[in-house]
Amino acid sequence: MPDPSTEYSFDPAAEVAEREVGEPPGLGPWRLAARRLRRNRVALGFLALFFLIVALCLAAPLYADHVAGIGPSDNNLTGKVERGGEQRDVVTPDGTPIGPGFGKEYLLGADANGRDVAVRLLYGGRNSLFVGFMSALITTLIATALGLIAGYFRGKTDLATRTLFDILWSFPVLLFAIALGTALAVGGLDLGPIHIAGNSIWIPTLVIGFVLIPYLGRPIRGQVLSLREKEFVQAAEASGMGPWRIIFGELLPNLSSTIIVFTTLIVANNIILEAGLSFLGAGIQPPAPSWGNLIANGVDRLVTAPHLAIVPGLAIVLTVLSLNVFGDGLRDALDPRAKLRLRA
């Protein structure tokens, strides 16, 4: 069978060092990549946008306390808000929440319980970004370790790892994530001495991090298989280095560009995946907000209050778009010819 890793196989050491026409000699691969990235204004612009979104979400408590004056879970069914000089109900007696409008309070409107959508959006962003980042980190750590070990030791180790990847790969990602997420959301998870409660944000994080392992593990393993035939590995072996030193000191640095690009793109991918899980009720559990469950909430009231679904969706699109564009630029800068791609 043509290993899927053939699709990704390239020679990272040679690629990174490859100099494009007009680039000054004498710069190392990292300096060259930084130079290419600096010239990619679009990628840098979107990186700035991403940092802005992260900063806004981190500042959620400040916004809630000093601007909106209402917490993310505070209901307000009977209150009034000033819009264009007149007092209006936050939630009308027939249950329709107020839409977006200028003003400190309810800038992006209210939901059916009279909660401030802008406040919930920022708090939800913290959760969504947390899941996106941490799950990407989990995937990257485990997949890199497994890929390195399988590719370096080959033989039975490789067979076991490859089988694990095969099984995880054939498990329909979304279905597996929903099954795990739902099962764990009810009873929680016991990891030795640590107990994770069913409504913990760590459940979707671990689930997403776990199901995507083969998507990075397979290309890493393929690269290690070809890298370990290179002279520098022979040289390292000849000079008496142990296997672990070769794996972490010699092989890992050669994989860094693949890992960096993959992690960036997978954060974007995971934010969408988390939203999908939350939409189906298997992600972040209410009342904790996340962009996904905010949309799910809004879809139920699409006709009376469309802003409830539109606003968090736009937040997802902007965040994911900024990460995707930056990731694309990063890939062009780090290894212009690598064909790394995510499916999920």
Partner: peptide, 22 residues
Amino acid sequence: AMVGISLPVFWVGALLLYYLTF
């Protein structure tokens, strides 16, 4: 294409339903 791959499918579906059917 970049916008396309950044869209959550259920959100697009919800918007289509709102604008084109309602």
